[in-house]
Design a protein around this nucleic acid. Structure first.
Length: 805
DNA sequence: GCGGACTGCTTACCT
DNA sequence: ACAGGTAAGCAGTCCGCG
């Protein structure tokens, strides 16, 4: 027996003589594999009568296409079931693939639970080890006898980013015909593999042909002993394309450590490729995840845009995809393609360096492999951690809801409170907000599906929510338990982070920062998870109570602020905008101190910032003559103390408005907020209108972008963007139907839809549309506030309205 | 036949 | 395919209107 220590990197399982063997990838001095034969698949069954259930289950045997699945053993297991202790039957079988075969037969004896947890993940849960933990194993050869966590691992994985270029004379490349022409890589070394002469590029290695290039790429992976492969969209494009090309060249795509290729597994909406013996991460999936949770904001998730957003600089090289084949065929310009290809790989690598640390922390925290975490949705991450902790606490993991229970979604839960602002320009505002309002409510009131007490059965010791639901104070629910762990951990990480603040480039700072981000992502997802119709720990009552308490506390703050003499200008969910009037920062801070003393433990109202000036605009349709001056919610602009403008909700932050309208709105806002100059604002607008009339506006400033979520035939209402695509198709032009559509409103036609043309096909533009439906509505919101009429802006010195025609 | 009021569909935003 | 709250545009429909 030998003892080894290493960092756990990955886990899966293989089958040996019909038995599952867990395979762990570890890294100590080297990267190596270990096996554990001692773990068996199991699930639980809840039965009415233990004795009878045992008898029924022990005899279960299913034959399916020559494959036999039997129940190997049945044991009793005491667990917490929906908040109460209960004895269930633990059914052990021979192979994970037998579980689905046994399911329907077993269901005859009782209700089946925990039958859909992947084998290797179950192993990690039960052994209480996580990827990126430092583990100690007792072993004989490569066989593990015992394993435990001894600390946190710190590893540097040998990473290599790659990218392929394909020949595409007909637009989209077709793997059955079009060869791969270049493979670029960036790791410890970087370069480009290809098979045509590229002059003067010392980073290019020329081989005999496509087959040799693919072989050389695989050889490179072996030579460099790559542990982590990074790609961008590589799971759906590069790898499958390479595989098909390899087959057509009569070779195998030997990218795996075992000489094999990769397997694609579908996870939710995503396809994820798994390479044996290496970790493959498709950074596109990570980028999209960051977009969905709101951590980044790009209109599209192309490598170029994602790179700019995350790395914070523009990607060096850019060529049009349609150009690729031309550059390849042109010996003079082939160098450009090689440069571009290399730049893609290098950028992918840089992107990985930035965003992988957070994924690694998520993997560590949730106890699931990188493979499981990359491409997982926020709710899946929440669930991974809940399942692990639930199982540790001997609590039965609830099943995913079946389709019938998805009827949960029917009646929406009442959400947050948003106060109607009065339109106008304000001086001296203070913005206050609750840090993590919903998470702190869930923790403070023990909100959980199984701490809920049924009506009429409430005990003494309860929290009664404003929504009328009672939650036990005594037994702690798993949801608040795990959430509290996350919040506490994050508080500690942030404290530690402050110690490293002066060295933001240090590995310590970076790791702590990534961890803090990961914890934040998780904490913010719990409320949504409670109300997500397909979650295992769904609880309408807990979700409803979260928002009800949220409304309660924010309204409470409103009352107190008013009583303290502030004008409460606006509120949304967890924030308050106070008009200071004659008061100053001192009074705001005193107010915060006072209210925070009255708030329960985890809840805290914080100062977000002071703003010398702010604008709230009128809601469309509520005219100025209307005495109420109703403002629009979720639309405002603030000028901070450093002269920076913070804008929310305005047309200019939306991608479905033209650049000309957005730029003009921004210019007006700046003139008003920074200089307080109506005159300047007015002149800007007049100038832009003039340019439009004279046909001087650039086409790209007129493009309106909208995303089509479904194919054009599926729309019942033909909106301009749908009409534009249809018109292009009628001309025989191939257009990607789903995705971001850019269109321009032209002169021909009556309705807006008739006038819309895809941006690349538009030959003219309708100045009146851009004036009346883009610039003026965007700008009048702000200038209308100052007593301007549309005509003041439309008429220039030289022209009268009559002259327009 | 046309304009205004209204509804419904749709997208993108805010917290 | 984590929640709800909100603004807004355009298409389409209904209705009045000699």
């Amino acid at each position: 027996m030998k003892r080894i220590r290493a960092t756990l990197i990955d886990a899966d399982y293989v089958t040996k003589e019909g038995r599952p063997v867990v395979r762990l990838i570890m890294k100590g001095k080297t990267f190596f594999r270990m096996y554990d034969e001692s773990f068996e698949p199991y699930f639980y069954v809840e039965v009415e009568d233990l004795g009878r259930g045992k008898k029924e289950l022990a005899g279960v045997r299913v034959m399916d296409r020559g494959k036999e699945a039997v129940v190997k053993k049945v044991e009793e297991a005491e667990l917490w079931v929906r908040g109460k202790k209960k004895v269930l039957l633990k059914v052990i079988c021979k192979h994970p693939s037998h579980v689905p075969l046994l399911r329907s037969e077993v269901a005859k004896a009782g209700s089946i639970y925990e039958h859909d947890i992947p084998f290797a993940r179950r192993y990690l849960m039960d052994r209480k080890i996580s990827p990126f933990d430092e583990v100690e194993a007792e072993c004989e050869g490569r066989i593990i006898r015992k394993i435990k966590k001894v600390g946190e691992g710190t590893v540097q994985l040998r990473a290599l980013a790659f990218d392929i270029e394909t020949y595409n004379p007909r637009g989209e490349p077709d793997a059955s015909k079009d060869p791969v022409i270049m493979i670029s890589y960036a790791g410890e070394t970087s370069g480009v593999l290809t098979y045509k002469e590229v002059e003067g590029a010392e980073f290019v290695r020329r081989v005999a042909g496509e087959r040799e290039m693919i072989e050389e790429f695989c050889a490179l992976l072996r030579r460099e002993d790559v542990e982590l492969m990074l790609g961008y969209n590589s799971g759906v494009f590069d790898l499958p394309y390479l595989k098909e090309r390899a087959e057509r060249c009569g070779i195998k795509l030997a990218v795996g450590r075992d000489g094999g290729d990769f397997k694609v597994r579908r996870r939710g909406m995503n396809d994820v490729a798994k390479i044996t013996g290496r970790i493959h991460v498709d950074l596109y999936l990570v980028a999209r995840f960051l977009g969905i949770i709101g951590a980044i904001k790009t209109p599209q998730y192309t490598l170029k845009k994602t790179y700019a957003e995350i790395v914070g600089k523009e990607k060096e090289k850019a060529i049009s995809k349609a150009e690729v084949w031309r550059l390849w065929d042109d010996a003079e310009r082939r160098r450009e393609l090689a440069d571009y290809s290399l730049d893609d790989a290098v950028s992918t690598k840089e992107l990985g360096d930035k965003i992988l640390p957070m994924e690694i922390e998520l993997s560590r925290i949730c106890g699931a492999t990188l493979f499981d975490v990359v491409g997982a949705s926020a709710s899946q991450l929440v669930e991974l951690l809940l399942m692990r902790r639930s199982s540790e606490k001997k609590m039965l993991i609830p099943n995913r809801p079946d389709d019938e229970e998805a009827g949960r979604r029917k009646v929406p839960v009442k959400g947050a409170y948003v106060k109607m602002p009065k339109a106008g320009i304000y001086d001296n505002l203070a913005v206050l907000d609750f840090r993590g309002l919903y998470p702190s409510i869930i923790c403070s009131y023990n909100l959980d599906p199984f701490t809920l007490e049924k009506e009429g059965e409430e005990t003494e010791n309860i929290y009664l929510s404003p929504a009328g639901h009672a939650f036990s104070k005594e037994k702690k629910g798993i949801v608040p338990m795990v959430l509290e762990e996350i919040l506490d951990k994050r508080a500690r990480v942030k404290k530690e982070l402050r110690k490293w603040e002066k060295e933001p480039e240090s590995s310590q700072y970076r790791q702590l920062y990534a961890r803090s981000q990961a914890l934040k992502v998780l904490a913010n997802s719990y409320y949504g998870y409670l109300l997500y119709s397909r979650s295992r720990w769904y609880s309408r009552e807990a979700g409803e109570s979260t928002t009800a308490w949220g409304r309660h506390y924010i309204r409470e703050m409103e009352k107190k602020a008013e009583k303290a003499g502030f004008e409460v200008v606006y509120m949304d969910t967890d924030s308050l905008f106070l008009g200071l009037g004659s008061k100053g920062k001192k009074e705001v801070k005193a107010f915060l101190k006072e209210v925070n003393e009255s708030l329960p433990g985890k809840m805290e109202l914080e100062l977000e910032g002071f703003y010398p000036r702010g604008v709230f605009v009128m809601k469309k349709g509520s005219g100025r003559k209307d005495v109420t001056v109703t403002g629009a919610k979720k639309k405002y602009a603030l000028l901070d103390e450093n002269g920076r403008i913070k804008i929310r909700g305005f047309e200019l932050v939306r991608r479905d408005w033209s650049k000309i309208a957005k730029d003009t709105q921004m210019a007006v806002l700046e003139a008003i907020l920074k200089e307080g100059s109506k005159e300047k604002a007015k002149n800007i607008v007049k100038q832009r209108i003039e340019e439009l009339r004279n046909g001087k506006t650039k086409k790209e400033d007129l493009v309106i972008y909208t995303r089509l979520r479904k194919g054009v035939r599926k729309y019942e209402v033909i909106s301009p963007e749908v009409a534009a695509v249809k018109k292009a198709q009628a001309k025989g032009i191939k257009v990607e139907e789903r995705g971001l559509i850019g269109y321009v409103i032209t002169k021909r036609g009556k309705r807006v839809s008739d006038k819309a043309r895809l941006a690349e096909l538009a030959e003219d533009y309708d100045a009146n549309y851009y004036i009346d439906r883009q610039i003026l509505p965007a700008v009048m919101k702000i200038l209308g506030e100052l007593g301007y009429e549309e005509d003041d802006l439309k008429m220039s010195g030289k022209q009268s309205r009559l002259g327009d025609l």
